[in-house]
Design a protein around this nucleic acid. Structure first.
Length: 189
DNA sequence: CTCCCGATAT
DNA sequence: ATATCAGGAG
């Protein structure tokens, strides 16, 4: 139905940072204006922080996100020759990028399966279905890595997120419509 | 663990 | 009114 809109690695990275605790629908409303004004890491580096906050305000956590985006542009330009690193360890060290965002950029941007993206949906569905009892996303990821073949890591997260948004919702899961009903540990009977 | 935070669904 | 949204940093 809906996912983040992006044309390149830069846009994917920025959109994913903005998507923290925010719907991708809302991110997609903001990014056309954002990418017109700030089309690359260099423009983030040179950006006016107040203006950046204004543009991304509706995505929430806008002060932290704007600060992180400017710091990210600065670091990429000054320490990485203007190029986003293509390995998980380096990505995680960048401002605003944690494990979830790093795995997302690696998989969807560079096409490299560095791990399983564990966001709020993947965490919730993994618990409900019975794939992991852990609450720490990093531990959930370790459990999933054991179960899912590496070639399916990227598509697996996409499917769980789509299923989590459409059927196995946080508030009111529609178990009667669920195709995993027979396999689910915690279905509502 | 707490804080960051606006928009939307329930 | 409250829970939730492709989380991350201190």
């Amino acid at each position: 139905m809906c996912s983040l809109d992006f044309k390149n690695i830069y846009e994917l990275t920025v959109a994913t940072i903005l998507s923290a605790q925010c719907t991708d629908k809302r991110v997609n409303i903001v990014t056309p204006d954002l990418f017109k004004k700030y089309p690359d890491f260099e423009s983030l580096f040179k950006s006016d922080l107040t203006d950046l906050m204004k543009v991304i305000k509706s995505t929430g956590f806008y002060r932290n996100k704007a600060k992180n985006l400017k710091a990210l542009g600065t670091l990429i330009m000054q320490e990485h020759n203007g190029v986003l690193p293509d390995n998980l360890e380096s990505l995680i060290l960048l401002p605003g990028i944690g494990r979830k965002t790093a795995n997302c950029v690696m998989g969807n941007g560079f096409g490299i399966a560095s791990g399983v993206v564990v966001d709020t949906h993947v965490k919730r569905l993994s618990y409900r279905i019975g794939l992991s009892d852990n609450k720490d996303p990093e531990k959930v990821e370790k459990d999933l890595i054991k179960i899912i073949p590496k070639k399916k890591w990227i598509i697996f997260s996409h499917y769980l997120i789509l299923h989590g948004r459409a059927v196995c919702k946080a508030r009111k899961p529609e178990c009667d419509k669920c195709r995993l009903y027979d396999h689910c540990l915690r279905r509502l009977t």
